[in-house]
């Protein structure tokens, strides 16, 4: 059987660390704890880090160092990390406002019906959980958050929408996300968030990082508009 954590080659200048076969709160917290340590330990030899559900891709400068040294350094960090007490509070807690309604979330009523719950129950279940930012990708600023309560987990739409607007709060399986920019998408839309998830002119450009925790809270339409949210049409 394969042992975890393990380090695999990914390319001429990248190694990939697999923390576990699956992801979990602990795995996400471990990744959040490891990222700054890897940045410090590798220094100028590091080109880029791509954290995701159960892995971290480490890209290094292949002319300044080599994979033997990188592997040894990463192994040492993993070893030291495994001896540490993990703190589940790892990562910032970021609270994001959501205007949940059938007007701002065209799939909310259908999702509630499929789940055998009231719309209010769906909202309550969505905002009660502290989600972990498992990965950022697909598009700039797209943060995959998990896991949603299994009672409101919902499969992707059979026909994806051609355009999902900026700020759409969505559920697919046991993941939830806020669309950072308009894009095609097949997730179930349940509300709108006025907080931009990717803002080129802001510093930092994203309100969350991998390993952070996110909790949503409901706001009404007036508050949504006052916070700078824009009305959207859905098709």
């Amino acid at each position: 059987m394969t042992e975890f954590p393990r380090i695999e080659l990914a390319s001429e200048n990248a190694l990939i660390l697999y923390l576990d076969k699956h992801t979990s709160e602990t795995v996400a917290a471990t990744i959040a704890a490891l990222l700054p340590q890897i940045r410090v330990a590798l220094g100028d030899n590091l080109l880029d880090l791509i954290p995701s559900y159960n892995s971290i891709l480490v890209q290094y400068h292949p002319l300044k160092t080599d994979h033997f040294r990188m592997r040894a350094q990463l192994k040492a960090l993993l070893k030291a990390q495994s001896d540490k007490e993990l703190n589940n509070e790892q990562g910032e807690l970021v609270r994001l406002p959501v205007w949940y309604s059938e007007e701002s979330g065209p799939d909310l009523a259908h999702l509630a019906e499929q789940a055998g719950l009231s719309v209010d129950d769906v909202i309550a279940l969505h905002e009660q959980t502290q989600y972990r930012v498992y990965a950022i990708g697909f598009a700039p600023g797209f943060a995959y958050l998990g896991e949603v309560d299994e009672r409101i987990a919902a499969p992707r739409l059979a026909t994806p929408r051609k355009r999902v607007p900026t700020g759409a709060v969505a559920i697919a399986d046991r993941q939830t996300a806020v669309y950072p920019a308009p894009s095609p998408g097949g997730w179930n839309l349940i509300g709108l968030c006025p907080q931009l998830m990717f803002d080129k002119s802001a510093s930092p450009p994203m309100p969350v990082r991998v390993g952070d925790r996110v909790q949503f809270y409901h706001i009404d339409k007036d508050t949504f508009l006052r916070l700078g949210g824009k009305m959207e049409t859905f098709r």
Binding site: A10, S11, I16, A135, G137
Partner: peptide
């Protein structure tokens, strides 16, 4: 497979 970082040339 859980989504993971993609290196150039993968």
């Amino acid at each position: 497979l859980l989504s993971e970082g993609i290196a150039l040339g993968a």
